[in-house]
């Protein structure tokens, strides 16, 4: 399957348990929002999904590739946008993309063609020559998403990608990624604590104190109430 499959994952920093028996599945082509307050374990989960950390407790499959037994196969199928910018600000937009392409084994004409394609997808075709440093926050984020799409991944992981952006840029990026999901069948896993970034048809996971408290569509979870209220009630009751 092309989606994301996490089963029985636990993780601890020494004595401190950060994730407890976390299990969920994101079907191919779905947009899944991971909601959780600060300290819920979102970043730890992201580090495990991107293999910055590993754990022996549980399994993670990305597009059918087990992260433990077929790490390279799994890593080749994910695109990642970290919370913190990982752009090389001294490089141009194009060079940032080409550098990343090379890390995925894409070079020459193939990489150049992909650069044009992903910039077009992210409406940044005219900015290829600009230095990343000269882009505004919204366009830097778009560039990071474009970069994550360079190797045509099956699963896109985004860790609070709208942090620090103004409302218009935030809405633009949320819309854009939802469209990618619908138009291209991309599986999206989007961590946030901003409930207005979640659409009714999205799958919602609520993570709190290292446990999954909810896993269903936003519409089913909220039942015509506000997601923000549901989220606050669930995380306060559980606290």
């Amino acid at each position: 399957m092309n989606g994301l499959d996490v089963s029985g994952v636990s993780f601890a920093y020494g004595e401190k348990q950060a994730l407890r028996d976390v299990s969920f599945t994101v079907a191919p082509g779905r947009f899944c929002a991971l909601l959780g307050p600060n300290g819920a374990g979102k970043s730890t989960l992201f580090s495990l999904l991107t293999r910055l950390f590993t754990t022996r407790d549980g399994t993670i499959k990305i597009a059918g590739h087990d992260l433990e037994t077929d790490a390279r196969g799994a890593m080749a199928r994910i695109g990642v946008v970290f919370q913190q910018s990982t752009l090389d600000l001294d490089l141009s937009v194009r060079r940032n993309l080409l550098y990343f392409a090379a890390l995925h084994g894409l070079g020459g004409a193939q990489a150049a063609r992909r650069v044009d394609e992903v910039l077009e997808v992210m409406d940044m075709g005219t900015r290829a020559r600009e230095r990343a440093r000269d882009l505004n926050g919204g366009h830097r984020r778009r560039l990071e998403i474009a970069r994550a799409l360079m190797h045509d991944p099956a699963v896109l992981l985004l860790d609070e990608p709208t942090v620090g952006l103004d409302a218009a840029s935030r809405a633009g990026i949320v819309d854009h990624v939802h469209r990618l999901c619908a138009d291209r069948g991309l599986t999206v896993f989007w961590a946030t604590h901003l409930t207005d970034e979640v659409w009714p048809s999205d799958q919602v996971l609520i993570l709190h104190q290292g446990r999954i408290l909810a896993d269903e569509t936003c519409a089913d979870l909220t039942q015509d109430t506000d997601l923000r209220d549901v989220f606050l009630i669930m995380t306060q009751v559980a606290a």
Partner: peptide, 14 residues
């Protein structure tokens, strides 16, 4: 600290 090492470490390379 700035995060670019993460990008490198998440490449599908040993």
């Amino acid at each position: 600290e700035m995060g670019s090492m993460r990008l490198l470490l998440t490449a599908p390379l040993p």
